[in-house]
Write a protein that binds this DNA or RNA. Structure first.
Length: 460
RNA sequence: GGCUGAGUAGCAAAAUGGUUAUGCAGCGGUUUGCAAAACCGCCUAUUCCGGUUCAAUUCCGGACUCAGCCUCCA
């Protein structure tokens, strides 16, 4: 039985989908005005892994992850660059998709964009105005009347009076209550706009997610996720908007992933302490980043360091070493290891525990390899199968070790040629020459391993 | 100030009222021409103070420290 930690109740709960066969999941995606950083990678990887696990449990999963392609920062950046905002956002959407591919992500079922949903957004705001949950102000903005929604604060555990006492409420002369938030922003000079019953303008941030999620998944769906920083106010506001509009319960389970930290601080754009995915990809494989992210449970904070990424590299090397040469087996069904793995993942997606099972299997592969080759093949197949549920270990081991021919100074043929020369020297017991060739290759980051039958190599 | 969450060995990170996490790193051994990898074995732990209990890292209370949200943020 799958249990998930629900931010709405602050406890683990049995996961029971509304429709027993299907899971509907909405995740808040990126605002596309810059390259994605490792923090974004964590959301992507965490929810991709959740998506995979739900599918492996047999659910038909409808996974919607939106793209915010209109907002203040996008407009600001586009104006800085003197380019249309659509050109800017498309560029970063493409970049994001490249990053996703590198990280081994499955495509979500749907990636709706805010700008494609203006009618839905406007319709929702109209309903909220009609129900008196929203009002148009003199300046052309439309605001949500927070105090009218009696459940406000239920997700973030906040009371209205606590929020009022908060230190950082901005006073705005057009709002009837400082807590009210904007649904529709009136256009300013040099800004893109859409027509609406309240004049030219654009949607506020929160409303697009309410509009897109309910439009694509229905008024009431199973899982809503995103980074922990979205819990308040973004998700709180989504609940207020959606439930006031539809009169129905919005999402049943709220999942929030923890942050990546740099020097004990949250990695973020505003602190300027972020590492983009593409920067990290210069030194590490996407799979290594993915492994690193999965070494901690998704709700925990995760410290960024190259030491951790190096460790991820070594750990994956161990797993791939176990798999090497054991490619054609059939995985046994319902083995104890698989049960352990599923139990770990069913416990609020405990990927560190699931990874531990992978290492047990790798250990088994290594032990069985010579004495019980048939079993070793089955174990390896299971290892690869479970790895796939985490989005890991799907590269051919030889390819993983050797990399792409064009990556280094020396071609595969040249390497094989030198190995042949070295084997000749070994036959003649010319150890000095054999070691010389090995050192020469090592200088070029090629590591050799003498097996009983043959010498294998890898790029370090 | 309000609300959350966290403090486990060199590093990272699980779990558990009494019994091996796991990975990286390190140490010893087997193996190897020497290596590498693998295998066998070892090493280091539960922030502090009380309480409950036969027994607590695990439950309860308190302290301290840290992080996050309350402003855009994954």
């Amino acid at each position: 039985m799958l249990q998930v930690y629900n931010s709405l109740t602050n406890q683990k709960e049995n996961f029971v989908p509304i429709n027993p066969e299907q899971v509907r999941m909405y995740v808040c995606g990126m605002t596309v005005y810059d390259y994605c950083h490792l923090g974004h990678a964590r959301v992507m990887i965490v929810f991709d892994t959740i998506y995979r696990h739900l599918k492996s449990l047999g659910y038909d999963v409808n996974y919607v992850r939106n793209i915010t392609d209109i907002d203040d920062k996008i407009i600001e950046r586009a104006n800085q660059n003197s380019e249309p905002f659509e050109v800017l956002t498309q560029r970063f959407i493409d970049a994001m998709h490249d990053d996703e591919k590198s990280l081994g992500l499955l495509a979500p079922s749907l990636e709706p964009r805010a700008t494609d949903h203006m009618p839905n957004i406007i319709e929702m705001i109209q309903t909220l105005v009609a129900k008196d949950y929203a009002y148009a102000a003199e300046n052309g903005d439309v605001y949500y009347r927070v105090a009218k929604f009696k459940g406000y604060g239920k997700l973030s555990g906040r009371l209205l009076e606590d929020l009022r006492a908060g230190e950082r409420i901005a006073i705005d002369q057009y709002k009837q209550d400082p807590l009210d938030f904007v649904l529709w922003k009136a256009v300013k000079p040099d800004e893109p706009y859409w027509d609406s019953p309240w004049g030219k303008g654009r949607p506020g941030w929160h409303i697009e997610c309410s509009a897109m999620s309910t439009h694509h998944l229905g008024n009431h769906f199973d899982i809503h996720g995103g980074g922990h920083d979205l819990q308040f106010p973004h998700h709180e506001n989504e609940i207020a908007q959606s439930e006031a509009c539809t009169g129905e319960h919005f999402a049943n389970y709220w999942l929030h992933n923890g942050f990546i930290r740099v020097d004990k601080e949250k990695m973020s754009k505003s602190l300027n302490n972020f590492f983009t995915i593409r920067d990290v990809l210069k030194d590490y494989k996407g799979e290594e980043i993915r492994y690193y992210i999965l070494t901690s449970q998704y709700r925990s904070p995760l410290q960024y360091s190259t030491a951790q990424l190096d460790s991820a590299h070594s750990s994956l090397e161990r797993l791939y070493t176990a798999l090497r040469g054991l490619e054609d087996g059939e995985a046994l069904e319902n083995s104890p290891a698989e049960m352990q793995f599923i139990a770990a993942m069913n416990d609020d997606f405990n990927t560190p525990k699931a990874l531990a099972v992978l290492f047990e299997l790798a250990h088994d592969c290594n032990r069985q390899r010579d004495s019980q080759p048939e079993q070793a093949l089955q174990t390896a197949a299971l290892l690869k199968k479970l790895g796939s549920q985490l989005g890991l270990l799907q590269t051919e081991p030889e390819l993983w070790f050797k990399g792409i021919d064009t990556e280094s100074d020396m071609s595969d043929d040249q390497i094989n040629d030198l190995i042949a020369q070295r084997n000749l020297a070994k036959q003649e017991k010319d150890w000095a020459k054999a070691d010389d060739i090995r050192n020469q290759l090592s200088e070029l980051n090629i590591a050799l391993k003498d097996g009983a039958q043959e010498t294998t190599w890898r790029r370090k």
